[in-house]
């Protein structure tokens, strides 16, 4: 998985800014995508490209249980969010619907990655390669159940 980085240097990016409340009435996922991150970045939908990664601080996705948040990011083209930590409902929603990969990164990795960096993520090796900076970072492996659901392509394809 290769893509470039959109970085938000902040903690507690909540689901209300990822996908503001007024848009929860929208059922068309491509329409939802036009409002992704609108709460803190009105230009997000113009700059995001298919395959991009979001890099952010602690407690990404806190707040509401709206699955519209990972859906909006996913349909914008975001393949993974790399954050210092995640709120649990967002994490779970991202995995359940196979919308995007929620990847926990270390503090050093977070600091090293810059806006626009080209990354290659290899979950099988638990590794991120920063092509721009010619370096690699280790990532924590997914817990067993989550790894299996991801491998199956979401909750409904997962057979215990």
């Amino acid at each position: 998985m290769k893509g470039s980085v959109i970085k938000y240097e902040r903690d507690n990016i909540d689901t209300d800014v990822i996908l503001p409340g007024p848009y929860l009435k929208i059922h068309d996922y491509n329409e939802l995508a036009k409002h992704a991150m609108e709460g803190i970045d009105k230009d997000f939908h113009k700059k995001v490209k298919p395959g991009d990664f979001i890099v952010a601080g602690k407690n990404f996705g806190c707040g509401s249980s709206r699955e519209h948040a990972p859906i909006a990011l996913s349909y914008s083209g975001v393949k993974a969010v790399l954050a210092l930590s995640f709120a649990r409902i967002f994490y779970r929603n991202a995995v359940d619907g196979a919308f995007l990969l929620p990847i926990e990164i270390e503090e050093d990795t977070y600091k090293d990655i810059s806006e626009g960096d080209q990354l290659e993520i290899e979950t099988s090796k638990n590794e991120i390669r920063n092509i721009t900076k010619n370096t690699t970072y280790k990532i924590k492996p997914f817990p067993e159940l989550i790894g299996k659901i991801i491998a199956a392509g979401g909750l409904f394809n997962y057979k215990p």
Partner: peptide, 9 residues
């Protein structure tokens, strides 16, 4: 609280 995929499940 759960998301919509879990609601369906």
């Amino acid at each position: 609280g759960i998301g919509t995929s879990d609601v369906e499940h």
